[in-house]
Simulated scan of single mutants.
Amino acid sequence: MDLRQLTPELSVSPQIRPEELAALAAEGFRVLINNRPDAEVGPDEDSLAMKAAAEAAGMEYREIPFVPGQVTPDMVDAQAEALALPGRKIAYCRSGNRSTVLWALTRAGHQPTAELLETAAQAGYDLSGVRPLIDSIAASGR
């Protein structure tokens, strides 16, 4: 697994396999956030398989599929709700980038944009393309 820590409570990752969830739970992760749409994976990694594996590992499961370029306010709100759950969280998609974008959008207006972009860059994700969206959310006071 390629876990990349954004905050003490949140790591992001490329696709996670169901058989990896017990080890993640043993490492202290309590919430699994799936940002990958089922259309991008086969039945072994779809939302039903991941939910069953997360629950078997004793983890809370949240599904917030993010099709590239199609972020919505409802997705940002759902991600914020998932991130507010107690315990360590791991969010994943194909590469971890979309999960990082959603994290940054949930933090818009709560942390400086430059700080969000730097945290993402330190984890290996370039969010400069979504800077205008982060700034717009921050300016709206959302």
Results as ranks from 00 to 15, higher is better:
Gln122Lys: 15
Arg107Ile: 06
Ile64Lys: 12
Asp38Ala: 05
Asp77Asn: 14
Glu45Leu: 05
Leu133Lys: 07
Ala53Thr: 06
Tyr92Trp: 02
Glu118Ile: 00
Leu6Met: 04
Glu63Ala: 14
Ala82Gly: 09
Arg36Asp: 07
Gly109Ser: 07
Arg30Asp: 02
Gly96Ser: 12
Glu20Phe: 07
Ala54Pro: 12
Asp2Ala: 15
Gly42Met: 02
Glu118Phe: 02
Asp74Gln: 05
Leu105Asn: 00
Gln79Cys: 15
Asp44Pro: 00
Gln5Val: 06
Ala108Leu: 01
His110Glu: 15
Leu117Phe: 12
Gly69Lys: 15
Gly141His: 14
Ala91Phe: 14
Gly141Trp: 10
Leu21His: 03
Asn35Tyr: 12
Ala80His: 09
Ala52Phe: 11
Gly129Tyr: 08
Tyr92Gln: 11
Thr106Pro: 05
Val130Ile: 11
Gly141Lys: 10
Ala49Leu: 10
Glu19Phe: 00
Val130Gly: 00
Val130Met: 09
Ser99Pro: 03
Ser140Cys: 04
Asp77Ser: 15
Gly87Pro: 06
Val41Cys: 02
Leu133Ser: 07
Met75Trp: 01
Tyr125Thr: 00
Trp103His: 10
Leu48Lys: 11
Lys89Asn: 06
Gly58Ser: 13
Pro14Gln: 14
Asp46Met: 09
Gln5His: 11
Asn35Lys: 05
Ala138Ser: 03
Ser128Asp: 08
Val67Gly: 01
Ala123Ile: 06
Ala23Thr: 09
Val130Phe: 04
Ser140Val: 14
Lys89Tyr: 03
Cys93Val: 07
Ile134Tyr: 05
Leu24Trp: 02
Thr7Cys: 06
Asp135His: 04
Ala120Tyr: 10
Leu116Val: 02
His110Lys: 15
Ala139Gly: 03
Arg62Trp: 03
Glu27Gln: 11
Ile64Arg: 13
Gln79Pro: 08
Leu102Phe: 01
Ile33Pro: 06
Cys93Gln: 09
Val101Thr: 11
Asp38Pro: 01
Glu19Asp: 13
Leu24Ile: 01
